[in-house]
Design a protein around this nucleic acid. Structure first.
Lengths: 136, 136
DNA sequence: CTGTGTGCAAAGCTTTTGCACTACT
DNA sequence: AGTAGTGCAAAAGCTTTGCACACAG
């Protein structure tokens, strides 16, 4: 059955992304479930499944997906970008001991900054990363 | 007069950092005023002032300063880390059009997350970056 | 003379660029 | 045939590593 493949293609088309072979492969990995993956991890998963996709293409394609709003980028650290299939506003816990990244509900945080944006600017994004350590 | 140099040395000693020539140079640049600088900018400023310090040393020294709490790291984007001489908890506006980074008072934001940290963890840091665009 | 700490050249990453190739018109 | 879009090898750029040197005990 190839129903899932069709669903992936539909999503790409919705975002005005031409659904090529490589993009389908990469999108399948990213959107298979809610998850946070690095470019390196995506590369490994794509090539584990089947055909070969180059590193450069993985990077370029992930950048394309971000630009088109199909996935979003979570910046934890230089050379630790994660790509997140959940593009709605939500925040993250990053566990420094385990390297794990978890979502947290934006309802848990109130931002009163609406009155204090710099002059002549509009908000285009909000990144919140709570760093935690194991207490045990 | 070399009073400022002495003040820099004192700061390094307070943080248990051995005040070598290179570290004094780099700390002078970082702490001369409240500012946000990338590693590259620090390198240029250090070598503009006088003697030569290598890129590797700038990176290693900034990492050392972060580890010792002398400066803090603001992650905007991969390869866009800024080092911030203000180490108290505060947040940032990043203007995507101009590349400028500005502080914003943490009083403008309330975090109600104390009841919802993942199990067996303690908070070790909080990064908040509000991305803005020019509206004009 | 031995051990600890420092600075930097070189190596190892990640990411981007530029071009060959394809697929439509 | 011409044009726009795609994928990847190679180039560029950022960061870390490992070692030579210096300095203190």
């Amino acid at each position: 059955m190839n129903k899932p493949q069709d669903a992936i293609k539909a999503k790409l088309l919705e975002c005005n992304i031409n659904p090529t072979f490589q993009r389908n492969e990469i999108a399948s990995v990213m959107l298979s479930k809610p998850q946070h993956l690095s470019a390196e991890q995506v590369l490994l998963l794509v090539n584990a499944n089947d055909g070969h996709v180059s590193k450069a293409t993985v990077y370029n394609t992930l950048n394309l997906f971000v630009a088109k709003g199909l996935v979003s980028e979570v910046v934890i650290d230089p050379s630790k970008i994660f790509y997140d299939s959940n593009t709605s506003y939500h925040y993250h816990y990053f566990n420094e001991d385990t390297g794990e990244l978890h979502d947290f509900e934006s309802g848990d945080m109130n931002l009163n900054s609406n009155s204090s944006l710099p002059e002549n600017t509009v908000q285009s994004g909000l990144d919140v990363v709570v760093r935690v350590k194991n207490s045990t």
